[in-house]
């Protein structure tokens, strides 16, 4: 039993008990929240659906491998393990896709190899950028997102670069 196993159940028990103690209609509020949650899913589902289907299409076409292949010499020259190219490319689009590629890297290169370590750090310090952006902006129906994409993608590039450098220096 780890600390994180303890956290979620404790939070549920704690919040409900605190609510009861303060005289809140705990059941009524919870079910109302569930109803709101359903509406949230209804609102963000269309964007989510489009993203999942189009990203899968891009992967099925062999596009990610092709682009990674083209980028490989460039990445290699920059000191970035070429095995992690596809991970870096797919990570912003798909959480499950990135995890699948990450497992591939662990299987073929080993978790304690340089590629395995860099991949681990990238996976641990990044998020599914496009998924997050599409869901969050869909929630407020914002079409013009100004500099959001630029800032988020700059973050992803910095993440790949710093992850490589940190593994090289610290591990």
């Amino acid at each position: 039993m780890s600390f994180s196993d303890f956290m979620i159940p404790a939070m549920f028990a704690g919040v409900l008990l605190y609510g009861l103690f303060r005289g809140t209609d705990v059941f009524g509020e919870f079910t109302e929240g569930v109803r709101e949650g359903l509406r949230t899913v209804y609102d963000v589902f269309p964007s989510l659906f489009c993203l999942v289907v189009t990203v899968a299409a891009f992967r099925a076409s062999g596009g990610t491998q092709l682009v990674t292949g083209l980028l490989a010499p460039l990445l290699d020259a920059a000191g970035f393990p070429p095995e992690c190219g596809e991970l870096m490319l797919l990570r912003p689009f798909s959480g499950s896709g990135a995890t699948a590629i990450y497992e591939q890297i662990l299987r073929s290169s080993g978790p304690d190899s340089r590629a395995g370590r860099v991949a681990s750090v990238i996976l641990g310090s990044s998020e599914t950028t496009f998924y997050t952006m599409s869901v969050y902006f869909a929630a407020v129906k914002a079409k013009k997102t100004r500099y959001a994409l630029a800032a988020a993608l700059l973050g992803d590039i910095v993440c790949a670069a710093v992850s490589t450098a940190a593994v090289n220096i610290l591990l």
Binding site: E32, G33, V52
Partner: peptide, 26 residues
Amino acid sequence: NAVQLAITLTGVIVLWSGLMRVAQSS
């Protein structure tokens, strides 16, 4: 698969939305 992902996500979103409302009103 996209629908399946949405269903999984629905469970999680609904669960936390419920707890969030309790935390809010208390």
